[in-house]
Design a protein around this nucleic acid. Structure first.
Lengths: 218, 218
DNA sequence: TAGATTGTTAATCGATTAACAATC
DNA sequence: TAGATTGTTAATCGATTAACAATC
């Protein structure tokens, strides 16, 4: 199941909730395609792959799609996350209201100096050392890394050892699993998404300063 | 010039600085390819497209690459950004130290209630209304949106009208330009990158809860 | 020279789109 | 029925990789 597809599924789902709220009951592939800017045939193909059947005249049933997409995207289970690194970005995320709407909950923060972290968010803050025990007890599977760049790699190691299987990394270092190539034994896989704000901004500066000035870089 | 290519260029550059700091003077395409996980032929092609010539025996000169990449990526100019929305994430970004290393500077924050925003970051905070004047005076081209979702679209309009040409959006709403299709007149283009933290986390939950459990979703 | 690496062209790969038969 | 929309297959497109001649 490829990354783009899953992203599209989340977008469909979000849109479908809105359409439902507006009182609609059915959609056509071209409605969804327009909304997320892909060809209607791709929408149909996505649904076809997932065995979400439509009606050759009346399109797709919104309730059915929502229900099945929720299952496919694992949305029926609780979505609990821990945060490693309780600096400004880490604590900002702990207080991020949008998570609540999406059913995502930050259940703990970890830091090397928990005594210095303000507890205003209501999320309990522990010492980094306690992560493994916490993760094992709570069976947490997803973590966010908001530590300084220099600590990112070791924090990832800590998370993986603790049993975290999905990581969202905000440090400006591209993290990867299997940095040691010899993973013949099937050690538990960990998915990592890197969000590099600096890189994003640099990309924008490029677009703005260079790409738009020259008509085309030929 | 495609998006992936520019991203690779930034990665090359970052890596080259590190190699230089280690005292190296030359690199081969396969070194760079290994480091950013692409085929060496792609590295050579990238450089070839940009007329960055190597030496058929000694590889590429690191200093030359750094210098030219800096120009191509527009790194010689100051990289000034404004932030719209001075809530927790916005103010966290204003204090984000990593920007300094990359030559990125947040020169102002805007909010609908600037009097409520703590000024600890040293970045001046103005009322949203003053954005246009500020952007015109400072010729700012890049902005970050960290307002609540409900205000994101109108904030984008405000930025575009003020003259911003590149936007990094953190609101959980996918922003696009040209929401009105009839852009026959060549209105100034604006590049938008959306960072949707909820979507990223949902993707991770999918990976962790569903994808890894089933051997393959066939 | 022999060996190694670039620069470039052709092949591959994967994802998206177009087209159209099936059918409600 | 006629019209519209799905489901699926073939065509397209773009990006990456493999291969190899050129050459330092």
């Amino acid at each position: 199941m490829n990354k783009e597809l899953i992203l599209r599924l989340s977008k469909y789902k979000r849109l479908l909730y809105k359409l439902k709220a507006l009182g609609l009951e059915r959609v056509f592939s071209n409605n969804l395609g327009d909304a997320i800017a892909v060809a209607p045939s791709l929408v149909r193909k996505d649904f076809s792959v997932l065995s979400l059947a439509g009606n050759k005249r009346g399109g797709y049933d919104i309730d059915m799609l929502i229900e099945k997409l929720d299952v496919i995207l694992g949305r029926d289970k609780p979505q609990e996350v821990i945060v490693a690194g309780c600096g400004r970005i880490g604590t900002a995320l702990m207080q991020y209201e949008e998570f609540r709407n999406e059913g995502i909950k930050i259940i703990a923060g970890f830091d090397i100096a928990p005594e210095n972290v303000s507890k205003t968010s209501g999320v309990p803050i522990y010492h980094m050392k306690e992560m493994k025990e916490f993760v094992e007890k709570n069976e947490t599977k997803v973590g966010i890394i908001t530590v300084p760049d220099s600590a990112a790699a070791q924090t990832l190691d800590l998370m993986i050892e603790a049993g975290i299987r999905g990581v969202l990394n905000f440090a400006a270092i591209e993290l990867r699993t299997n940095r040691n190539e010899d993973t013949t034994e099937n050690q538990t896989r960990c998915t990592i998404h890197n969000i590099n704000i600096c890189l994003e901004l640099e990309h924008l500066f490029y677009q703005v300063n260079v790409a738009n000035v020259l008509p085309e870089v030929t």
